[in-house]
Simulated assay, not measured.
Amino acid sequence: MFTGIIEDLGIVKNLVKENDNLHLTIQSVLAPELKIDQSVSHNGVCLTVIALTENSYTVTAIKETLDKTNLNVLEIGATVNLERGLKLGARLDGHMVQGHVDQIGTCTSVKTQNGSWVYSFKYDASLGNLTIEKGSVTVNGVSLTVVNSKDGGFSVAIIPYTYEHTNFNRFEAGTVVNLEFDVIGKYVARLHNAR
Results as ranks from 00 to 15, higher is better:
2 F>V: 01
5 I>Y: 12
8 D>V: 07
11 I>P: 06
12 V>R: 08
13 K>T: 13
15 L>A: 09
16 V>D: 14
17 K>L: 09
18 E>I: 07
18 E>T: 13
18 E>W: 05
20 D>P: 12
26 I>C: 07
27 Q>N: 11
33 E>D: 13
37 D>K: 13
42 H>T: 01
43 N>D: 09
47 L>S: 01
48 T>D: 00
51 A>Q: 14
51 A>D: 14
54 E>G: 08
57 Y>L: 05
59 V>I: 07
61 A>Q: 03
63 K>S: 07
63 K>Q: 09
68 K>A: 05
72 N>S: 15
72 N>K: 15
72 N>Q: 15
72 N>P: 03
73 V>H: 14
73 V>I: 15
74 L>W: 09
77 G>I: 06
77 G>W: 11
82 L>Q: 05
85 G>F: 00
89 G>E: 14
92 L>A: 11
93 D>L: 08
95 H>D: 06
97 V>P: 00
99 G>R: 00
99 G>F: 00
102 D>G: 04
108 T>D: 07
114 N>Q: 11
115 G>E: 09
118 V>K: 12
118 V>T: 11
120 S>E: 12
121 F>W: 09
121 F>Q: 02
122 K>R: 12
122 K>A: 11
124 D>K: 11
125 A>V: 12
126 S>A: 14
130 L>W: 10
130 L>Y: 10
130 L>V: 09
132 I>W: 04
134 K>S: 10
136 S>K: 05
139 V>R: 03
139 V>S: 02
145 T>G: 07
145 T>S: 10
150 K>W: 12
151 D>I: 15
152 G>L: 09
152 G>H: 04
153 G>N: 08
158 I>G: 03
161 Y>C: 04
167 N>V: 10
167 N>I: 06
169 N>Q: 15
169 N>M: 09
174 G>I: 02
175 T>F: 06
175 T>M: 08
176 V>I: 15
177 V>W: 01
182 D>M: 04
183 V>Q: 13
190 R>C: 05
194 A>C: 04
194 A>I: 05
